[in-house]
Simulated assay, not measured.
Amino acid sequence: MFGKTKQPPIRTLIGEGTVITGELRFADGLRIDGEVQGDVIASSEAYSILVISEKAKVVGKVKAGHVIINGTVIGPVLSDQLLELQPKASIVGDVRYESLEMHQGARIDGELHPLKADEKAPLKLATANAGPAINPTTAQAA
């Protein structure tokens, strides 16, 4: 209904107090309440969901379709679908996303890059006369 895709089930849980060292690949859904020292990557091309809870910490790259963060990530984040940053989210690293929902209180220490920005053509400004084209990155106010 309303064009929403059904979310995959969360089949894996890393519990509070658990520490995993190394790359973690998952299919469908994963919830992290503990700590991961390494990359967390959705292994399938199909839609995936990753939940990093308030008490969780990931030190490494995070990549999944739908990513929900309310804990700490130290490393780059890539969300192919929707990135939800809840009030206690803290990211130190660059963030790439298809669409972004950010709640008040969430923090990012890095650059934000929408995935669609990679596909956009350069901005062209219309002019009233047939004069030279204006480059918006170097244009100065008169």
Rank of each mutant, 00 (worst) to 15 (best):
P122G: 13
A133F: 05
E23C: 03
S43Q: 07
K6D: 15
S43H: 05
M1W: 09
V51S: 04
D80A: 11
G93H: 01
K120N: 11
A42S: 11
R107K: 15
S99W: 01
E35F: 03
A139K: 05
I52A: 03
A121N: 11
L30P: 00
T137E: 15
V19F: 04
A126C: 07
L24P: 01
S79V: 02
F2I: 13
E23V: 09
N70G: 12
G60C: 13
Y97P: 04
G15K: 05
S43C: 02
G29T: 10
P87Q: 07
V92Q: 14
K6E: 14
Q37I: 14
K88H: 09
K120Q: 15
I69D: 12
G34A: 02
D118C: 06
L125P: 10
K88L: 08
Y97N: 02
E119M: 13
P9F: 02
E16W: 06
P9Y: 00
P122C: 12
G15D: 10
G71Q: 08
K124S: 11
D80P: 00
I10G: 10
Q37R: 15
K88R: 12
M1E: 07
D109E: 15
V19C: 11
K63Q: 15
A126F: 08
I74E: 15
L115G: 09
V40F: 03
V51D: 06
E16A: 13
V36Y: 02
D80R: 13
G60D: 12
E35L: 08
I32L: 09
L125S: 04
T72D: 13
D109G: 10
R107D: 04
V58Q: 01
K57I: 12
R96V: 09
A128E: 14
K88V: 00
G17A: 05
A142Y: 05
P122E: 08
A133P: 06
L85S: 08
V77G: 05
G71C: 12
K6I: 12
N135L: 12
